[in-house]
Design a protein around this nucleic acid. Sequence first.
DNA 1: CGCTAAAATGAATATCATTCATTATAGCGT
DNA 2: ACGCTATAATGAATGATATTCATTTTAGCG
Lengths: 198, 198
Amino acid sequence: MPRISAERRQDRHRSILDAARRVLTEKGLHEASMSDIARDAGVSDGLLYRYFDSKRALLDAVLKEFYEGLLARLESEVFRHMRFEDRFRRLVELHLTTFIEDPGLCRLFISEVRVASNYRGSETQALNRRYTKVLLRVMERAEKEKRIRPGIDHTLFRDLVFGGIEHLAWRHVNGGRRLKVAEDAAVISTILLDGVKP
Amino acid sequence: MPRISAERRQDRHRSILDAARRVLTEKGLHEASMSDIARDAGVSDGLLYRYFDSKRALLDAVLKEFYEGLLARLESEVFRHMRFEDRFRRLVELHLTTFIEDPGLCRLFISEVRVASNYRGSETQALNRRYTKVLLRVMERAEKEKRIRPGIDHTLFRDLVFGGIEHLAWRHVNGGRRLKVAEDAAVISTILLDGVKP
DNA sequence: CGCTAAAATGAATATCATTCATTATAGCGT
DNA sequence: ACGCTATAATGAATGATATTCATTTTAGCG
């Protein structure tokens, strides 16, 4: 028999998750201490561990929520288009948009999660898989309809697309070259589409 | 008047650097402690700080040495070829080869250095710039000779190339998809070259 | 062969993540 | 309304580890 209501537990959970998102995106994983997060959430240090197993679990939870939103948007937007080229362009544009909208979370994901030693097999990796799977689905369809040249390794092309965009966007996230979404998306898409044309 | 010879100082420096490379590539930055490195080098913890300012400085020194080797090789190999296509293919192949030859150092660079908050303006970034500059030089020449379509943003294309390869190779470094250098390099090069053809 | 400045040491310090003994409290049964 | 108790919440203690610095050792000159 629990002594606090499910609502209260949810509220606490949310306060902590929100605080973690704010503090982690602002200061980065290593600069942000658990005490910073606890203070921001208005709870004691120890309580964090009744809601999350560890600092990393907290980070993972923040990014999981972020990723779920991205995934829903990507899936719903990309398949509105019918032609391969339009789908691909929309995917590139949306992916770039993410970096503009949430540089802090993108930075966190790239610098702390994707490269972590425990990434393989994690829930975050599963989400990342589903996210990039959208492109694979788009390509399978395109190959059937002969819109792309046969014999291209889809996973290799996927890595080229997401890796290339990420690298480009990283400079934006770090305050280097400014990203102009529509324009850059068009250039990237054109190069990559020409690269796989029949 | 120093009480040890320059040779001895060099030897110590090298022992520590070698130990750091071994320990850091094997255990990763956070799992490896300064004591681990000191033990491997056969010196006391404190002495590390008479040769390097901090753990990060040690990491940077290890990667600087690594990068200098890569750079020398890239510059000497790529410009042996005269045609744009051959230069580009060679660059892609060499870059992929690096991930096969030194997965530990590549992993360290990607996960700990390129994403670090103090990367901008660092010596390592300068080396990275020189490294990727090779591609920019190749492209400038190619554009003058009309081997690539005009109006392509070279830095954008550069990010696409290095980002794409890195992403692909990351799976290799992490024990995922196995990299077949010659074959994968050919596929990547073909896609990207077709993408910028006049 | 002692002297001294620099090299080398390793115990002490500071900073966290995490744990856990202790205290506070929600809400049930009476 | 009022204890009672299981759970929530706390925050000081623990352990790990980067870094510092007072102390010890040593190279090699006069």
